[in-house]
């Protein structure tokens, strides 16, 4: 490496990045490694005494995948819950976002007030998820507005939070509401990144707007769609606040809305079972790592344009 000037200043680079890496090492890396480490130990609280850490090999992982009395494997069920609730929200999220992104970027339609509409649809993304959960819990509770409307029209009050379907649907709806505005804005950026001359050429050739959408917009948007989709999926795996608040941490009814992170939270806060919790963490880590790899791969093709960073 022979760089004329920067060599003498190189040590400053280390000084500038040092605080970040020191704090990262203490607050994230060490805890991450010790979490992995504990996953091979019995380390929990029984009554008021702490048991362990005693090395037990893969016993925590075996326990994690051992069916309970009813034949259910808890962690798989929680994974299924998490993914199902995420998916139920993500489908309308992406459909709405795609439609809105096309409306907002349409040269033909010249929609007015896009600033206002964007502001409105993005707002739920910044609202506290716990408050969202609490609000919807109140709205759908027995004496809440929804039941009041049902009863005012002669219907029977519905116990929304005693039924698996309605609890999952409400949680999925909140996730949809919180994220479709964000997705819209990301997809808009993607559409605006498409070479405009393609759209012009298509319109000169007399392409219909549906043709333009399916033959140009969608295919060229695919890499960004994939990126947004997988990052949303990674976010979905971490689903916690909304179901935690709505079910008060119980995952009611009978664990059907328990997510993986809620389960992890129970293991830490209630039973202090760091061994089993460690195994859950490792599992989430592995799933996230695989998905992140997909994101990383999907980002690579659009990279070369700013390749100057690498030396």
């Amino acid at each position: 490496m022979k760089k004329r000037k920067s060599i003498s200043y190189a040590k400053w680079g280390v000084v500038f990045v040092l605080p970040f890496f020191i704090v990262f090492a203490i607050c994230q890396l060490y805890p991450l490694l010790s979490t992995f480490y504990y996953s091979f130990f019995e380390y929990r609280r029984v009554q008021l005494t702490t048991v362990g850490p005693n090395f037990i090999g893969f016993d925590n992982y075996i326990e994690l995948f051992t069916p309970d009395l009813t034949g259910n494997i808890g962690i798989l069920k929680y994974f299924g819950n998490t993914m199902l609730m995420w998916f139920l929200g993500a489908v309308p999220q992406f459909i709405f976002a795609l439609i809105l992104a096309v409306i907002f970027t349409s040269e033909r339609m010249k929609i007015k007030g896009t600033g206002f509409f964007k502001t409105v649809i993005y707002m739920p993304n910044l609202i506290m998820a716990s408050a969202f959960g609490m609000l919807f819990y109140t709205i759908f509770s027995l004496g809440g507005p929804v039941n009041q409307i049902i009863q005012a029209n002669g219907g029977e009050a519905i116990y929304f939070f005693n039924q698996e379907v309605s609890v999952k649907a409400i949680i999925a709806f909140i996730n949809f509401l919180m994220w479709y505005g964000n997705t819209t804005i990301l997809l808009m950026a993607g559409i605006m990144g498409i070479d405009q001359s393609l759209f012009e050429a298509a319109s000169i050739d007399g392409a219909k707007s549906t043709q333009v959408f399916f033959r140009i917009t969608i295919p060229l948007l695919m890499p960004i769609m994939l990126y947004v989709f997988v990052t949303a999926l990674i976010g979905g795996l971490q689903m916690y606040d909304v179901p935690q608040i709505i079910t008060s941490g119980t995952g009611a009814p009978s664990n059907t809305s328990m997510t993986m992170i809620m389960y992890l939270n129970t293991l830490i806060a209630k039973s202090r079972n760091f061994g089993l919790g460690g195994a859950v963490s490792v599992l989430i880590f592995i799933i996230t790592a695989i998905l992140s790899f997909v994101v990383f791969k999907s980002m690579v093709p659009s990279k070369p344009k700013k390749a100057k960073g690498g030396k």
Binding site: Q28, T35, Q238, I261, S281, T288, L291, S292
Partner: peptide
């Protein structure tokens, strides 16, 4: 991409 919850036990 690593969720912070993953290291929360440690």
């Amino acid at each position: 991409m690593i969720p912070t919850q993953v290291s929360s036990i440690g």
